[in-house]
Amino acid sequence: MPYEVKGVVARGKGAPVGVETVVVPDPGPGEAVVTVAACGVCHTDLHYREGGINDEFPFLLGHEAAGVVEAVGEGVDEVAPGDFVVLNWRAVCGRCRACRRGRPWYCFDTANASQPMRLADGTALSPALGIGAFVEKTLVAAGQCTRVARVDPAVAGLLGCGVMAGIGAAVNTGGVTRGDSVAVIGCGGVGDAAIVGARLAGAGRIIAVDVSARKLEWARRFGATDTVNAAEVDVVAAVRELTGGFGADVVIEAVGRPETYEQAFYARDLAGTVVLVGVPTPEMRVELPLGEVFGRGGALKSSWYGDCLPSRDFPMLVDLFAQGRLDLEGFVSERIGLEDVEEAFARMERGEVLRSVVML
């Protein structure tokens, strides 16, 4: 029998979200129903509400989640009822050209559930990032469930998006290694996770850049060795001064704006690497002198989900947390209910929280 549950729905561009009845079907072949225990409030959910991703309203928001598998459909052997899982939006296919070449983190044919979840009147919902987890139960492709050791779901769920995106931007995409200098522009949840990743990888100098003194203080807590307040000084000049006049080996842009991307481009050393992990909106454009692109060498990369492989990376990061080597708890600013998501968006925009986490 289908499940009737409560979930957070965005019905129109910019309109306040509301808690509504959601009908979740029984899992079909290759699908799983997950009872959601916790889900982080990510800036991408706000992008969905604002129409910055697409216009396929109504959206069932939420995607940064952990919970317990309730039921599975035919042919599912990745997980079983009772498994504690972190949800991911990159369920790799194992068959496309990227997967066959041994690069499944670039999979070109990732899976979501085939059946839609619906409102009580039958209207099909578009689940955020193919998940939709601001809801008591959600339907996903079984490959979107990564089994991990059972820990606090409020911290485990953060691996499902923001923390993984940031750590992966440093470790997987940026290739940060021992002794590197790293600058991170934008010190929200993803940027701070990039700082954590750089520290785990053994970076020698980690420079946090933001316009908010509060966020720079958070960045120090996560391992930044230096801070630059972009509201007060020239970012490029400051980063170069802190790196012997050269620029950083790796610059991670975690804002997703043309002006901060340009700062990242010029704040890197010759042959250095720029990693874009901040999410831009569709209309944004960046212009750079082609001669500078050629003459500076190095690499300009984008990091989509931290180039992660959930089956490899999620269990490893949960283990690091359990060992006390990864401060996931530090990302949780508050624990809230489903009815508090709209105000959580407002606090996020005001820069008052790293992560609000919905507890179910």
Rank of each mutant, 00 (worst) to 15 (best):
A248R: 08
G12K: 11
L46W: 09
L328A: 08
E56I: 00
W304A: 15
G18T: 14
A183V: 02
G306F: 06
R205N: 08
G197T: 03
F294K: 15
G157T: 03
T173Q: 11
L276Y: 07
G186Y: 03
K137V: 03
V233P: 00
V239G: 07
W105V: 04
V228D: 01
G67V: 04
I195F: 02
G295N: 15
G94Q: 04
E20M: 13
T123S: 12
A219I: 00
V72S: 12
C145R: 05
E352P: 06
H47M: 15
P25M: 05
A98M: 14
G30D: 04
S181G: 15
G94D: 06
L60H: 11
G160W: 06
K13A: 13
A169W: 02
V163Q: 02
G132F: 09
V182T: 06
E56H: 11
A169R: 01
V86C: 01
T281S: 14
D269Y: 09
V277M: 09
N112E: 15
T21I: 09
V69T: 04
L159S: 06
A71K: 07
R199W: 02
D307Y: 07
E292Q: 13
H43P: 00
K13H: 11
F331M: 03
P280V: 08
F321M: 13
E262M: 12
A154Q: 09
H43L: 00
E20Q: 13
D152S: 14
C187E: 09
V196L: 15
L320P: 04
G179C: 12
W218K: 02
V228M: 00
V233M: 04
A237R: 15
G157N: 06
L46Q: 11
V68N: 15
R90P: 06
C107K: 03
N229H: 00
A98G: 00
G82S: 10
E329C: 02
P127G: 09
G18N: 10
A156R: 09
A264W: 02
T146M: 02
F321D: 12
T110G: 06
L125Q: 05
N112D: 15
A37P: 03
W105R: 08
V239Q: 08
G168C: 06
R240V: 01
E64Q: 13
A37C: 12
L309W: 14
